[in-house]
Design a binder for these strands. Structure first.
Lengths: 349, 349
DNA sequence: TTGAAAGCGATACCAT
DNA sequence: ATGGTATCGCTTTCAA
C-alpha cells in the first residue's frame, strides 16, 4: 500500500532539503525580511523553490507570525454599483499592499452585519472595512461597537465608510452637505416645488441625504412637504415603487423629485414612465452617488458625485496608516453636484 | 515589566483551562464533528468559550486540518454588473456552506489572471472559481491549465464560468446558442440589415456570441457584413466608441446593431445618441446578459438573458460536488431571448 | 469518553 | 550569516 499524502503540497522543509540548507535559512531566503542570507544560498533556495513549484502556506505563516494578510470587506449588496465600485477600490488598494480581500454581504441587515463581524473574527484579518449602509438602531449599534472594539483591542483595524456615529476611523462621505448643495443648485435652475423618495428612516445615509436636501431648500425659503416624500427600499425597485405611489396620488405641482440614491432615481424614472409621466420633461429627477449607469439613462441623471473607487482605496489606506498617527481619523471625500438633462433649467415662470 | 501579549486573542487553551477540561476535549466540543463528548463537559466548554468570547483561529485550524474553508473567486472587473451578479451568487452559496470567499480582479488580463492563480495557491483555497472572460492565447491557456491542474492534484477544485476550452468543471453559458436564437428572433421581427459591436477577437465569449449571431442570420439567408462590425473594449466605453465609429462611417442601411454584451449595448445607445441617431427608432440595438440596468435605459434593451446570480450559485455547487461524481462536469444554464423596446417590430417593408 | 502528545507548516530566538 | 529548536493555535491519533 502506498502512503496517501493528505496534502501533496511542497513544504518549506522540502525546499530546504533540496537546496541543502536549513529550514531557517530557507525561510529567511524566501519570506524573511532583509539581506541576512548569503547570496549563494539565497540563489540555491530560490532555485529549489522554483524547481519544486513551492508556494508558501499562508495559513501556516499566519499562525507562526501571529498576523494575517487579509482584509475583510463587508458590503450591503455586491450587485449594487455603489458597493461594487467601492469594493473595486478596496481590492485595488489591497492588491497593491499584498493583501487578500475577503468579501461578505450583509444584505443590508444589521443583524446579519453583526453576525458576520463575529464570524470574521476567526479570520483574524488585519482590517475590517464596513461599507454597508448601517442603521441607527441603538441595540445593534452598541453590540457592533463592542465587537469591533475588542477586535481593535487585539490589534485589528476598523474602518467605516460613510457612517460616523461610531468611534472608529471612517471615510466620511458628506451626504448631508452634498444633498444640501444639490438643493441649492436645483433652486438655482428655477425649481420651486419638490418631492423626494427616500429609504427607511433607520438608514443613516438616507436620513442624512434627505435632511441635507430639505435644509438646503429651507435655506431658500422652500419647504419640502412631507406629503410629497415617499419612502421604501434603498433599491431600484424601491425607487420605482415610490415614483408610482407619487404618481398615483397625483404629482400636483411637484416639479422635481429627489431620490436619495442613483439606483432609486433610475428606478423612479422608470416608475414615472410606467405611469405615463416623462422624466426630465414632465417631472425632473435627481439622484445621489453618480454611479456609471446615470450617464446612459435618458435623460441623463442629475446627481451628486462621489468618487466611489477612491473611497474604497482611501478606506484601505486609512486602515494601513501607522497606529500612532491618530491626528485626523476622519477622512472626508469631496462630493460635487453634477447637473444633467434630467433637471433642465426651468424656463421663465 | 509586564508580559506583552503579541495577540490578545483568547486561545482554545484558555477555554480548556477555564472549563477545566483538556485541550483535546475543548477542541472536540467546539469544532469536533459529532457526539464524542459528554454533554456535561460540552456545556462547560461552551460556557467558557462564551464567557471568554472565544473565536476559533481559522488559520491555525487550517494548518492543523490541512484544509481551509475558503473559496477564491476571480472576476474580470467587480464593478461590471455581469461579474458582480455572478459574485453575489457565489457569495450566497459560500455563506450557506460556511465558506469564506476571497475575491481578486484580473482586470481582464490573462497575464494578471495567471499571476493571481499562482498567488492564490498560498491560500490553499478549497475552490478556485474563474469567472473572468478568458482569452484564447495558447501561451496563457496552457500555463494556466498547468497551474490549475497541479492545484487540483493537491486536492483543490476548479470551476470555470462560461469558458469550455480547458478540461475543468464549468458552468457553461450558451453564448453561441443564445446569440443564434437572438438572431432568429430579430429576423422574425422583420429586420434584414445588421451590424455588430464586439470585443477583442481573443475573447472567447465575444467570439462565440458574434459567431452565434452571424450563423443565426446566415440560417435565414442573411449575411453579417464584416464592414458593419466594429470591435473594441468589452466595456461601456468600448460600446460607445464602436457606435460612434459605426455612425461616423455611415450606418448606411443597417437597421439593427448587436453588441456582444449589455454594457457595450448601453454604451452604444449613448454613442449613437451622441451622433444624433436615436436608438430604437433610427437604429435598433440588442445586447447580451440581461443585467439589471437594461430595464431602465430608454428604450429598454432587447437582450439574451442569463441567470447570472444562479450561475454563481451553480459554480459553487459544482465545486462542492463529491469528487467521484464525474458524470457530467459541464453544467449548462439556459439563456433566453428577451425582446424589448430597443428592437421594435419592423413595419411592413 | 477523555487526556497526553505528536504533528501541521511556517517563524524567530538563541547559540554557534 | 547559519542552524537547531521552541513556538504559534489547533486537530487527531493513541492509550488509558
Amino acid at each position: 500500500m502506498s502512503t496517501t499524502q493528505r496534502t501533496g503540497s511542497v513544504t518549506l522543509h522540502d525546499v530546504a532539503r533540496e537546496a541543502g540548507v536549513s529550514l531557517a535559512t530557507a525561510s529567511r531566503a524566501l519570506n524573511g525580511s532583509a539581506r541576512t542570507v548569503n547570496d549563494e544560498y539565497r540563489q540555491r533556495v530560490m532555485a529549489a523553490a522554483l524547481k519544486l513549484n513551492y508556494s508558501t502556506n499562508l495559513s501556516a505563516q499566519a499562525v507562526a507570525k501571529g498576523s494575517t494578510t487579509s482584509v475583510a470587506l463587508l458590503v450591503g449588496d455586491i450587485a449594487d454599483p455603489y458597493f461594487s465600485s467601492i469594493a473595486a477600490g478596496v481590492i485595488r488598494g489591497s492588491e497593491e499592499a499584498g493583501l487578500i480581500v475577503t468579501m461578505s454581504v450583509t444584505e443590508r441587515s444589521p443583524e446579519r452585519e453583526l453576525e458576520l463581524v463575529r464570524a470574521l473574527r476567526g479570520q483574524r484579518p488585519r482590517v475590517i472595512i464596513l461599507a454597508g449602509s448601517r442603521s441607527s438602531e441603538e441595540e445593534h449599534q452598541s453590540a457592533l461597537a463592542q465587537e469591533l472594539q475588542s477586535f481593535e483591542g487585539n490589534g485589528g483595524r476598523v474602518v467605516f465608510v460613510s457612517q460616523h456615529e461610531l468611534p472608529f476611523d471612517t471615510v466620511r462621505i458628506d451626504n448631508y452637505g452634498g444633498a444640501r448643495a444639490l438643493a441649492t443648485s436645483l433652486v438655482g435652475l428655477g425649481y420651486t416645488r419638490f418631492g423626494a423618495i427616500t429609504g427607511e428612516h433607520a438608514l443613516i445615509t438616507a436620513r442624512d441625504r434627505l435632511a441635507g436636501f430639505s435644509d438646503g431648500l429651507a435655506e431658500h425659503g422652500i419647504t419640502l412637504d412631507p406629503r410629497n416624500v415617499e419612502s421604501g427600499g434603498f433599491t431600484r425597485d424601491g425607487g420605482f415603487d415610490g415614483a408610482v405611489r407619487l404618481a398615483d396620488r397625483g404629482l400636483d405641482d411637484v416639479e422635481l423629485v429627489f431620490a436619495v440614491n442613483d439606483v432609486m432615481a433610475i428606478g423612479a424614472m422608470s416608475g414615472f414612465r410606467s405611469r405615463g409621466i416623462e422624466p426630465g420633461t414632465q417631472v425632473a429627477v435627481a439622484g445621489f452617488d453618480d454611479i456609471q449607469a446615470v450617464r446612459d439613462v435618458t435623460p441623463a441623471l442629475t446627481t451628486v458625485s462621489i468618487p466611489l473607487f477612491e473611497v474604497g482605496e482611501s478606506a484601505l489606506a486609512l486602515a494601513l496608516r501607522p497606529r500612532g498617527a491618530d491626528a485626523e481619523r476622519d477622512l472626508a471625500v469631496a462630493t460635487s453636484v453634477v447637473l444633467r438633462a434630467s433637471t433642465p433649467g426651468v424656463a421663465a415662470r
